[in-house]
């Protein structure tokens, strides 16, 4: 068919447009090509970052740190003293400038982390932050009404447990060290690591007991 057909031309045009990335995708592509061609950032660095954070780095690094702290009191002491140094020892460091502080839950204290300014998060050890962590609702409400927000996550805190809300910054990020659940005596590092959830390390989950709910 060689005759001009306006419907066909419109269809072709739509297909071409369909292939056009969205406005923000084009803006990102523009920035990327500009910084790469000026040698400000290596393209391999960007590719490696996207691959690592999309597929490989989840909360498992943080979970391993928590599980180790359950098994080894001296590791726990060092983690609470200087979590950034411990992360570096394990090869989990992110920005050199970003310090990490570990805060431990006890029978009397529950810790929960937020970034009220934007979305600072220890992503080199917890992977990408969940979407709710970035939401305006979480960022404002967890400070105002932490117990209510925690209840929405299914965390019912007894009266005697105080809540500490830690506000992350670009320079200081937090890792909540949840309590080791009862009934896990004799468990291996791998078994314990599998119990520790991302939300527990943000503080929106408290009880990691495998006998209460699934240890997903």
């Amino acid at each position: 068919m060689t005759t001009f057909d306006s419907d066909e031309a419109a269809k072709v045009h739509r297909q071409l447009h369909h292939a056009l990335p969205s406005d923000p995708a084009l803006r990102v592509k523009a920035l990327e090509s500009l910084v790469v061609e000026r040698g400000m950032v290596a393209p391999e660095t960007l590719d490696a970052w996207v691959e690592a954070y999309s597929e490989h780095i989840g909360p498992k690094r943080g979970a391993e740190m928590v599980a180790r702290s359950w098994l080894d009191p001296s590791f726990r002491a060092r983690l609470l003293e200087d979590a950034a140094a411990v992360a570096e020892e394990l090869g989990f460091q992110g920005h050199a400038s970003a310090h990490l502080k570990a805060v431990e839950n006890t029978d009397r204290i529950h810790n929960v982390v937020v970034c009220t300014l934007c979305s600072c998060y220890p992503f080199s050890i917890l992977g990408m932050s969940p979407s709710w962590y970035k939401s305006a609702a979480y960022r404002s409400r967890i400070v105002r009404e932490p117990r209510k927000v925690l209840a929405e996550f299914g965390v019912e805190l007894p009266e005697g447990v105080a809540v500490r809300v830690w506000d992350s910054t670009a320079e200081l990020r937090y890792l909540v060290v949840p309590q080791r659940p009862a009934g896990t005596e004799g468990w291996s590092l791998e078994q314990l690591t599998a119990l520790v959830t991302r939300n527990a390390m943000i503080g929106t989950e408290r009880d990691l007991s495998p006998y209460v709910k699934g240890a997903a």
């Binding site: 990335p21 969205s22 923000p24 995708a25 990102v28 592509k29 920035l31 990327e32 910084v35 950032v41 290596a42 660095t45 960007l46 970052w49 996207v50 954070y53 999309s54 597929e55 920005h95 992977g127 990408m128």
Partner: peptide, 16 residues
Amino acid sequence: VFDEPWHAQVLALADA
């Protein structure tokens, strides 16, 4: 983890 490739790319760029 990311809904769109550009979501990952914008954070990768900022981090880099």
